[in-house]
Amino acid sequence: MQNVKRSAHTPKTQTLARLAKLNFLAFGIVITIFPFVWVALMGTHTRSEIFSSPPPFYIGDNFIDNYYKLLEIMPFWLVLWNSLFISVMGTIGAVFFCSLCAYGFFAFEFRGKNIIFTLMIASMMVPPALLLIPFFLTVQFLGILDTHFALWFPAIANAFGIFLVRQYMVTAISKDLLDAAKVDGASHLRIFLVIVLPLIKPVLATLGIVMFIGLWNNFLSPLIVLSSPDKFVLTLALRSVQSLGDSPWGAVMLGTFLSMLPLLIAFLFFSKQIMAGLTAGAVKG
């Protein structure tokens, strides 16, 4: 069928082009995947095997030793729990409060609404690196340095989430529906919980995905907020074992691999939703 369509090309150049295209894509995929395969392999080797030549392109038998070594150099499960706790609290909080606030922007008319909404969107333009100092000073002022609270609580009200949910509400919910519910005597809280929330489930999933991945991978704010090793999150704990003298690379690489594993597994099952979520702003742009 295709041959007929593209009769302008001779079969020979066509096969060549096809071959080049496939090689190009295959090369890209190999480059993309290789570091992940490599880290998984290294997690199963001893230090001397990793540093041997030729490099060990096979699954080693030192996994158990590396695992115990990993527990020696950092409290891995505690740190994993810290990451999970912060990510889950921040995600649940953000999904609830952002949709609540978005409902406010969607359902109510009040003076200065447009100005507040514009200001909120403008705040999204401020590069995160620049918010570091005000964030740190606020946390310090509130006396919540070195707590997990300082990491997940500020995340629950964020302009991106409110904007995302509000935009979705505009397309998914008709004002008539709200009016009908009001005529029936439903309070705003009831309308929000019973009518609006079920209708905006898809965007809540999107927001949840974006929040969870962002919080799980977060490094800069834990770096400036947390100081005691038993409160560290995964990213911070990994960095702290990076420059140990005589680094046990097998154990460090095992820890690195395990820290990525939850998101990788989630991506295996929900790749469509995750990709749509993380490009939400872009694709609608």
Binding site: I33, F36, F219, T256, L263, I274
Partner: peptide
Amino acid sequence: LFIPFITSTVAVSMI
């Protein structure tokens, strides 16, 4: 090709 984007920059840089 999207996988690197969702993994943590710290983990990736360690690798």
